[in-house]
Design a protein around this nucleic acid. Structure first.
Ligand SMILES: [Mn+2]
Ligand SMILES: [Mn+2]
Ligand SMILES: [Mn+2]
Ligand SMILES: [Mn+2]
Lengths: 219, 219
DNA sequence: TTTTATATTTAGACTTGTCTAAATATTTTG
DNA sequence: CAAAATATTTAGACAAGTCTAAATATAAAA
């Protein structure tokens, strides 16, 4: 089934909102996410129900069907691989690529994104630390979330290290950060993407280089 | 002025049709090129006249204004650079990239295409031998046309070599091809993009590798 | 449990781009 | 040149996606 760009954006919104809100998503929430009106969302949802992309009972919100979820993940896969391309190959800064990826994610092709993935050498995460779904739609959930993608005020616990080099781990040692360490993001600095983090042994500044390499789980 | 994908496709069609037909393009010609109806073209042309993208007098056909021409060349630049990317970096075959480039040429960004051009190391021609306009909209016309882009039955004369290596020129020597040699394309083989070419000293088969490196001028 | 506030859906209208059918202009031909 | 053929434009309709305003359902408050 071939979807329009608009439809793809709706699907993606329902997916990511549902992800944070245990699946059931309200009309208003979607309309806020997509900068549109609730009435427009209502119309689109009816179309989606007909196409069996969502489960929908009037006034009860929507959730994606398996088909809808698959499609949403495909778009997210494209979005994130394009972001890697823009940062790693074209040398964009990580904070400049999102809007461009919003366009590129809608390019239709059976082969393009897999070739791009090969060209990029099968990255596992995008420049913001978010996991890239594989070609079968498998995506690692919270497990592989990066500290860099944690929002202001949110708490998490360290569950792994992406860069497992000696020097990196030694450095973490100095900061008293190890597997199981609870962290709370107190602020984020847009200029260099560093963050102030509260640890068990006090508040410290953490560079983006570090936060991109720390697997965490929200708590 | 921000143009829709549809508008960009119309502009590109008017540009390339006008190029072959000394600028004045008819409604019907455009409708054939874009697989649409003459009435739809009429509607769009009126919009273009309002936006000062075309010169238009009812029933007299259209030609691009300087603004329209600039915009058309921008899109062609994007199309051809994306084609180079797809072939050189993602290893698509040169005959697989056109439809994808038709999508990618519409990605909107102030910076993307220049960064892509740098990444590709400033290619001068796309995989089909067509010249790539520079960032200022300058495009080398017939002058830098490649033998590979000459159509069946057309005649041309050699005006330069892209790959000026010794071995390449020695090889051309053997074929009795040199600056000023007249050539006529007798047939093209889709399988390996080779062509049969009539030279002053007989008909020979020329590989795509060769034809992509011969600058020619139509006669 | 009523009443009130909020959320959601429906109705009707608008825009972009398309189409068919009809009207009008241009070109070709006798 | 006048008639016929062809090309172009206009008129009116339709689909996708959006909006405002009104109707209806759900949730919150009294
Ligand atoms: Mn993004
Ligand atoms: Mn991202
Ligand atoms: Mn092309
Ligand atoms: Mn090309």
């Amino acid at each position: 089934m071939l979807l329009s760009q608009t439809e793809e954006n709706y699907l993606k919104a329902i997916y990511s909102l549902g992800y944070a809100n245990s699946n059931k998503v309200s009309t208003t929430l979607i309309s806020v996410e997509l900068n549109t009106k609730a009435s427009s969302v209502s119309d689109m949802i009816k179309k989606f129900a007909d196409k069996e992309l969502v489960h929908y009972k009037k006034y009860q919100g929507v959730s994606l069907t398996e088909i809808g979820r698959k499609k949403a993940i495909e778009i997210i896969r494209k979005h994130r691989l394009w972001e890697v391309f823009l940062v790693n190959k074209l040398h964009y800064n990580w904070d400049e690529v999102h809007e461009l990826a919003e366009q590129l994610e809608h390019i239709k092709s059976e082969t393009l994104i897999d070739k791009l993935e090969t060209f990029l050498d099968f990255p596992t995460h995008d420049p913001h630390g978010d996991p890239i779904p594989d070609r079968n739609g498998n995506i690692e959930y919270h497990k592989n979330m990066m500290l860099s993608s944690i929002e202001n005020g949110e708490s998490c616990v360290v569950i792994g290290f992406k860069d497992a080099s000696d020097s990196f781990l030694k450095f973490l040692d100095k900061l008293h950060i190890k597997l199981g360490s609870p962290l709370k993001v107190l602020s984020k600095e847009p200029f260099d993407n560093s963050m102030i983090v509260e640890t068990e042994s006090g508040s410290i500044s953490i560079s983006n280089q570090i936060s991109k390499n720390l697997f965490v789980k929200k708590i």
